[in-house]
Computed example of a mutant assay.
Amino acid sequence: MPGKASKENRSPAVIKQAGIWFARMRGPDRARWRSEFERWQAADPVHRDAYAEAGAQWLDAGGLAATEMGRNRRLPEPRPALWQMPAVRPVFAAAALLLVVLPGFWLLRAPSAVPDAALVAQAEPQATRVGEIRAVKLGDGTIVTLDTDSAIEVRFSGDLRQVRLMRGRARFDVAHDAARPFRVEAGGRTVIALGTVFDVGIEPGGVRVSLLRGSVDVRGVAPAGGVAAVTRLAPGECFTDVASRPKVVRASPAVQQWVSGMLDFDGVPLGDVLEQTNRYSERKIRLGDPSLASARVTGGFRPLPVEQLATALAAAFSLQAERSPQGDLVLRRR
């Protein structure tokens, strides 16, 4: 939840920018705005909090009830939507007008330029705590956004740019340098890029690489006396060797949202949803009945605070949330 101090520091301009970015990142052209949005968000913690607050207001205003899951579960009637609130009505009115007059365009210009993420030393390991998402800027201008409980090591030299993902997930917005390909090592795989945007995550049983822009090569471990297999990804594709042979599939649209602190799901089993959201909190949400794991979830959620997430899921599936002796939250049938 955004802190009191950061909330007091939000200027009207920042609040307006957050509303604009929230509209863009839920629109049809969000992939086009992704890189610029991440730079804006990484520039100042106040930006991240303002964006999260815009998302929270959307959910409070009935965003969840407007989803397929909300309709199927007969959630209560939504309160006035975010774009109907006095403070942000002009922003959304302008966006709506542009959608009518110029289909395919959300806004005419970007927010004002903002400083980049903090510069980090090449030899300095970077890690996030559980529940923290943080962006750092490397010496070559590449911006790396670390997901919850993630860590990287950076090694740069005259002809080498190399990052090792030790745990978790990270997004790489790579600065172009034709003379020095950018390499990410993770779980026995090497991802090679020049200038592009992609995610790399270490998951139980393997590695997942999702490409948002540009192109990357994913290389495996070379067999004795052989040559490592190379898989080239196009934007929107995902390489995975999790629990199966290596394969390329279409990347889920939801993969783009995690850097903003929002997780989107479309028909995902509840058990899989909790596997993802529980990574963001020391306190976990458990299922009191294993059969609940197959219930399908559609909607956008913030994984924190965990109590609010448990309450939202309980309301969506007509469950009740109870606290276990260990402090976890357990969803049970009523």
Results as ranks from 00 to 15, higher is better:
A186Y: 04
L99C: 00
R180I: 06
R169F: 07
T298N: 09
A94H: 11
K137L: 15
S244L: 10
P111W: 05
P28S: 08
G104P: 00
L165H: 11
P103I: 07
S210L: 05
L119I: 15
A243I: 06
P76A: 03
P111N: 01
A110K: 02
A23C: 07
V174M: 06
L313D: 00
V197M: 02
L309E: 03
P223A: 12
S291F: 00
N9T: 06
K247Q: 15
A254E: 12
F317Y: 04
A50S: 12
M1Q: 14
P246C: 14
T128S: 09
A113C: 03
A118Q: 15
V120R: 10
A251C: 10
S252V: 07
T148G: 06
W40T: 02
F156D: 04
F22K: 02
A123K: 13
L309A: 06
S35K: 11
T128V: 08
L107D: 07
T145H: 08
G300C: 12
W58P: 00
Q320L: 08
I143E: 07
Y51C: 01
L82W: 09
R302A: 15
G220H: 08
R34G: 01
L319G: 03
A151F: 11
D289A: 14
A54Y: 07
A234P: 01
R183M: 12
W106Y: 07
V218W: 08
E124Y: 09
T231K: 13
R164Y: 13
T311W: 09
D149N: 15
A193G: 03
Q257W: 09
E53S: 14
V14K: 06
L82N: 01
P28V: 06
Q126A: 13
E185A: 13
P115K: 09
R109V: 13
A95P: 00
A56F: 09
T128K: 09
D266N: 13
R34I: 03
D177C: 01
G226R: 01
R155V: 14
V306F: 02
G236E: 04
A23I: 03
S11P: 03
S244I: 06
R180A: 08
M69Q: 05
Q17I: 06
R296I: 00
D159P: 04
L59V: 14
F37R: 02
G131L: 03
I133W: 03
D140K: 04
V207R: 01
L102N: 04
A23P: 04
E275Y: 12
L331T: 03
D272L: 11
V174P: 01
P78A: 11
G214E: 02
D241Y: 11
V14Q: 11
E185H: 13
D159C: 05
W258A: 01
G70Y: 01
R213A: 12
W33R: 02
D217W: 04
P12V: 10
W58T: 00
P12Y: 10
V154Y: 08
R71C: 06
R171V: 10
R134G: 02
E38C: 03
L212N: 07
Y280K: 05
P12Q: 11
A127I: 10
L319I: 04
S294T: 09
P235W: 09
V259S: 08
R164L: 15
R171F: 12
L97A: 08
K247W: 10
G220I: 08
I20N: 02
R74E: 11
